[in-house]
Structures are given as structure tokens and as C-alpha cells.
Design a protein around this nucleic acid. Structure first.
Lengths: 210, 210
DNA sequence: ATGAGAAAAATTGTATCCATTCTTGCCCAT
DNA sequence: ATGGGCAAGAATGGATACAATTTTTCTCAT
């Protein structure tokens, strides 16, 4: 039998949401712009039904705002926006670290990410960074926490991802500290380290954005 | 002109979601039951489009699960479910306390809730308890955090709310401790106290459910 | 100019229709 | 008798058309 990539991987509403998300984050759709159902559907080559659902997904991710009978306005990055995003992520990821320690979860995947991050250069730092965080979420054993953090990661604030070497080095060092504390099952230390890591990333993002 | 209550307060999809939420939490729709679009739409007296959107809201709240092309199954309370809910809430509400302290927010509304909780009996404890927590979220100044916690509060685990006097007393004492730490701007203390308060509530819920 | 009111445009909800997919149950071959 | 496969049925996912409401804009009379 032929081995072909399936035509349909996800529901159309999610493809639409992904496409719009990318456009908003890359700022090819500008802040404050008004999205109408019909024009968006036409631009995506689909009907309005899945577009309506995609709008709700994006609203949940904080990329657009839905007003009663008035449609969707594209939200932009703002300092307040960034702050809110990172404050929540700091709390949740710190909790994930705490849970990993308390449950004595398997750390092999996390370790793999840390060492990969060491060996490879900074060019694909973004993916490795995400893997490191994601595997911690997974190891926490709280599937709902994984869902919430995944949604946050899709949000606006993660849009402008840095590839600067300087940032990658600093971040890598912090990842190693976090991992060592996880390995030592130091719940307080690991969660505090993760919290600090994320809040410092927030400051980086804020200054870069400003 | 006549002064009448508007017939339509919220979008139909949200009314539908609210109606289904209530039915699921009160267990008039049982765990594991399969909800079909058509029958649900007929039962609610609306068409299927807003029902589909309501299903997605409920799935986000963790009350149902949507399977590809197979509809919605009603989820039940499980220990894992409860744990995940409270772990996340503990992290977020502790963060809210931290933010309240760091930002030096206005505490008057929160104080009002604490003293109301003192003066009135335990009969309307549920509402007062919610007000206390809600006003802390608000005072954090993080609107996204408010949204996320509101969604969590709508979830399954909050369904069986206790009115037992014993619990209300214990909880009230903890609320007072939390408030005093907020007033002293002790971010670490307040967040730790809130965290403990919620995790203890979790234990109560787990033993009661078991 | 200003304000009332009509007209246009967009969302929200309704009603069908079709394609795809998942389940179920039956039939048949072994 | 049992297990695999096939067909029928049901339900979702999406498309399309339309009615109803609301918002915005534009016009026109005062």
C-alpha cells in the first residue's frame, strides 16, 4: 500500500486557527485590525462555520477579542499583555517543577533535552527550549496543566522568539540549575528556580519589546 | 418607554453551556453519558450550531470530552480530576496573592468579604467564599488570571460545594490568616497560606468524595 | 451643524444538505 | 463456533442559504 501523508490532520477549525495565529504573531495581520467572518473565510478558502469556531479558539488564546455582535479585533503585544502571560506561566511552571519532585517522576526525557541543548548550537534553540519545558509539564503528571500551558505557549507573547546567542547561553545555564534541583528532588528550590527563570525571561522580553 | 428586562442577556451558546454545566454538575446528566448534537439541541430548544460551540466551551472547562467524529462524553469527578483542578488553582491563587502584595493593591473589597464571612452564618457561605477569592484575583490586576480562575471555578470539581459548618469554620480561619498576610504585604507568607488553604480544601474534597 | 432616521453591513442563530467517519451487526468462510 | 470483513446506519464536520439583531454609516430635514 502506498504510504501517503493523510490529507486531513486536524479539523478545519484548528487549521484555520493555526493559520490565523501565525499571521497575527508574525504581524502580517496588524494590531487593531478587524476580522470579518466572510472575508476571513474567503481568504482561507473555507466556509464561515469553522471560522467562527477558530475565532473562539483565538479569543481563548488571547490573540483576538470578540465583542458582542461586532466581530473580532486583533490584539497586539503590550507590556501588560506580556506581564500577564509570564506571571501566569511562572506560577504554573513552578508548580509543575514542584509536582515533578513530589511525585518522583522520571527525568530521563528532561535530561535528554538539557544535554541536547548543550551539544547543539543556538540555531534551533527555540525547539529545544520548548521541549525542555514541555517535558517538565508532562512529567508533572497533571494533564490539565499540560493543556493550559500549551495554550499559553500558543499565545501572543511567545511570538517574537529570540535566537540571540546571549539569551540562549543565559537560559541554558538556568535550565541546568533547574534540572539539578529536580534531580535532587528539591521541590522548593526547583520551583523557585523555574519561577526566576521565567520572570527573568519576562524582563528580557519587556526590554526587547520596549 | 416601558422598562423591561431584555430577553437576551448572553449569546445562546453561553446560555446553552450554562444549562449543560448545571445539569452535569448536579449529575442530572450522568457520567459517561453520550451527548449528541441533535438531541441536545432539541432538548434546549435551539439549533445545533450554538450547541457545537457550547460543547467546545464545556470541553475547555473539563466537563466533557470531544472525540473525533464521535461526539461528547460527559466526564465525571475522579480523584485525578480533583487533584489536577486543585493543584492548578493552588498555583494560580498563590500567585494572585503574591501579586496583590507586590502591587500594593487596594484591599478594601477583600476585607469586606472577610468580615461579612464573620458576621453572617454559614448558610450562604458558598457565595461569600467565592467573593473572597474572586476579589483577590481582581486585586492582582492580572485580567487573564481572573479569566482562567473563573473558568476553573466553573469546572466539575467545584460542583459538590459543602455547606458543612465544620468546613466553613476552618476555612474562615484560614481566610483571616491570608488576609492578615496580604495586609502585611508578606508576599511569600500570603502565597504560602493561600496555597495551603487550597490544598487542604483538596484533601477535604478527596476524602468526602471517596 | 445637529440629530433623527433610514440604509448598509456584520454577527448570531436557524435550517438543510452532503461528505466523511465511526459503530454495529450481520454474513460468510474457515 | 469463531473471527474477519463488509454493508448499513448514525453522527459529526463542514458548506450554504436565509432570517433576525445589532452596529455603524450616511443622508436629509430642521
Amino acid at each position: 500500500m502506498l504510504n501517503l501523508r493523510p490529507v486531513k490532520l486536524m479539523p478545519v477549525r484548528e487549521q484555520a486557527a493555526a493559520s490565523l495565529r501565525e499571521a497575527i504573531i508574525s504581524q502580517s495581520i496588524k494590531q487593531g485590525e478587524m476580522l470579518t467572518l466572510e472575508s476571513t473565510a474567503k481568504a482561507l478558502g473555507i466556509s464561515v462555520t469553522p471560522v467562527r469556531e477558530a475565532f473562539q479558539i483565538l479569543a481563548r488564546d488571547g490573540l483576538i477579542e470578540l465583542a458582542q455582535n461586532r466581530g473580532a479585533v486583533v490584539l497586539g503585544m503590550s507590556p501588560k499583555n506580556i506581564r500577564e502571560h509570564y506571571e501566569i506561566r511562572a506560577a504554573l511552571e513552578a508548580e509543575a517543577c514542584r509536582l515533578v519532585c513530589e511525585k518522583g517522576a522520571d527525568l530521563s526525557e528532561i535530561e535528554r533535552c538539557v544535554s541536547h541543548l548543550v551539544s547543539s548550537g543556538a540555531e534551533n534553540y527555540g525547539d529545544l527550549n520548548q521541549s525542555f519545558h514541555y517535558n517538565i509539564w508532562l512529567a508533572s503528571g497533571n494533564t490539565r496543566l499540560v493543556n493550559m500551558l500549551s495554550e499559553l505557549w500558543n499565545g501572543l507573547s511567545m511570538g517574537l522568539r529570540t535566537t540571540k546567542n546571549e539569551y540562549a547561553r543565559k537560559s541554558q545555564a538556568e535550565h541546568e540549575v533547574i534540572f539539578s534541583m529536580l534531580k535532587a528532588s528539591d521541590a522548593d528550590g526547583a520551583s523557585r528556580a523555574m519561577r526566576g527563570h521565567i520572570l527573568r525571561s519576562m524582563e528580557d522580553m519587556l526590554t526587547r519589546y520596549k
